[in-house]
Amino acid sequence: MGGLARFLDSDFLYSFKRSPVALISAIVLAICVGAAVLAPILAPYNPFDLASLSLMDSFHPPAFESEGDASHLIGTDDQGRDMLSAIMYGTRISIFVGLLAIGFALTVGITVGLVAGYMGGAVDAVLMRIADVQLTFPAILIALLVDGILRAALPREFHSKMEIWVLIFAIGIARWPQFARTVRGSTLVERGREYVMAAQVIGLSSRRIMISHILPNVLGPVLVIATLNLGLAILDEATLSFLGVGLAPTEPSLGTLIRIGNNFLFSGEWWITIFPGLTLAAMVLSINLLGDWLRDALNPRLR
């Protein structure tokens, strides 16, 4: 049976098709991701093209309001940017930051977890105490700290160029301990299994055993947690941007858009903050619901 045929016949797909929550979440997420990825093609305007912006267009309400304008479906912001386009591009940035931050956290977390779990002893004790200490602080606080330190340490010019990478690093470093702990736990279990002993008997190196034997077997649970954390990482980015330490208004992410809109919420221009907010909420919620479903679907004991 080929890989595709096996997948189409799997219990996994079966349970997916039978779960309305998973189906709806997947559709919402697909719309968000589709709109974000295809933003340059689908978006009616290019919000980064400063030349096309005109203050004359600012504060247009959404098209369905009485003063609305059909050319800006959900209105414009204070700079005259089309909100729909800004949200599509903003989502693109948010997803990009979230994915890379989680990718970074996964790389660090999996490596640390594998080494700690397989080597044990003092290596394990030291690595896990570091993770424990970091886990006692909220992730967002760590991200703020790291961001602040880098902001102070890097030359101003360099920092503003590297802004998005600093953000990714800060969020990623804040989220690795959870992955490390999970991977270490699974590694401890796998290390005691006889297939690992079989590899040790023929004299394979620890590195090779960790990578080719243990890693494929510990990946499942940590990927589920990564899914749940992706939603949180996107929220982290929004929070940091909302607090003003994230991305600049010239290249707004969803968080930046919410922050800008927040200034006008009480003067009646609600759409500038509400629509990015709704997009963020819908996206994070669907990621979390999908993650929850994935966890249950992959856990044979709950079936």
Binding site: R193, E194, Y195, A198, V201, I202, P216, N217
Partner: peptide, 19 residues
């Protein structure tokens, strides 16, 4: 010399890498 020794294990469900 290492090649000339090997081992068979108890639990047939744990001694083969499932992946």
């Amino acid at each position: 010399l290492r090649r000339r020794m090997n081992m068979i294990f108890q639990d047939p469900y744990a001694s083969l890498n499932p992946r």
